[in-house]
Simulated scan of single mutants.
Amino acid sequence: MSGRRCGRTHGRFGSAQIETNKFQSTLPKGGATVCVNEYAVPLFDGVWNALTMIPARSCIYWRYLISYLSQSNNVWYTGVANNEDASMKGGKMSIRLEVWGENALFSRSEFKTERVTYDVMTPSAARGILEAIFWHPGMRWRIDRIHVLNPIRFGSIRRNEVDSVINIGKIRTMAEGRGDGGAIYTAESIQQRSSTILRDVRYVIDAHFELNRAKMSSTDSAEKFQSMFMRRAAKGQCFHHPYFGTREFPLEFQLWQESGDPVGFEHGHRDLGYMLYDFDYRNPAHPTPLFFRAELDDGVLDVESVEVGS
């Protein structure tokens, strides 16, 4: 059995780059090298074509195939295989998650009392959903695209709220054994406020995460984090139940099940105006909101390379 020589081979879902490493000299003469997700795998005729046909985002399929190959051949090769299409791009691991719910409220910052939603989910809300499923101090979620699958429909509701917040100074006083901590009694502080919300929403989130090596242990890796997220999302596990903007509007989620790309609800261009992108936490005491010009193209909000500003 012989392997393919080092080079770039293109499949349906992208390309895989093979790079020889320093261990090449210890391997059988004339062998090609390949390693997927840091696992050395045997390479023989007919297998390379199978490898390049697997969707890059289907990380779990790579692992199953590797497990099978490791028992099927006694000739081993090593190196680095990096699919540039989706699985890993410049060291960034990608995922695709479908989320849906009955209601959503992504509050516009320019409205102070009556809450009015943005037309679509904001990138910061999408990040919050992913962090609810899996988060680690050694990683940072970045949103690439938000596919809007259902038509944008608005509704209006009225809710009972209170007109004040608890004073932190009164909390300190209560901790010292004096006062009631500034308790708020709804019967005395109740107000009824209107909110403009979204109805029957469904999105697909394309995202990746970047690593912060300073906050990772020696056993952590990008593959480990992605595997943990995929497993938790497939089982419906989360640290806290994710929601659409407010906890009153919980959502359902699952990994994207279709083989093709999501299809937006409309064709054409739609300008959504300025939208909240996220917060800049470089100064934790005073986070700075960041905004960008949001545009829907064929039902897709692409935020991978947008310009943001405060």
Rank of each mutant, 00 (worst) to 15 (best):
M228R: 11
L97D: 01
R202T: 01
R153I: 09
S221E: 03
Y274C: 01
L251A: 13
M93T: 01
E110A: 14
I18T: 06
C6F: 12
E38C: 06
L149R: 05
E304P: 00
Q24H: 12
S156Y: 08
E102T: 14
K215S: 07
I190V: 13
P151E: 11
N73P: 00
C6A: 11
D278M: 01
R159D: 15
P250W: 12
D220R: 02
R159K: 15
K22D: 10
C238A: 15
R282T: 14
Y203N: 03
P242A: 15
G155C: 14
L296T: 01
G179V: 12
I146E: 03
G260R: 07
R4P: 04
R293P: 00
H240A: 14
F279D: 12
R270E: 02
S164C: 15
M216N: 06
Q192I: 10
V308Y: 01
G30I: 03
D271L: 12
N212E: 05
S94C: 14
D144R: 02
I157K: 10
P42S: 08
W135L: 07
S94W: 11
Y243T: 08
T78S: 14
E38K: 05
D220Y: 04
T78R: 06
G179E: 04
E248N: 15
R142N: 09
A207K: 00
F291L: 06
I133Q: 02
L301T: 04
S189A: 15
L51P: 03
A132D: 11
V306G: 02
G182F: 06
N37A: 10
N160T: 10
L296N: 06
H208C: 14
A234Q: 11
A187Y: 06
A50Q: 14
A234C: 08
P242C: 13
Y61G: 00
N73L: 04
R293M: 04
S58M: 12
L198C: 11
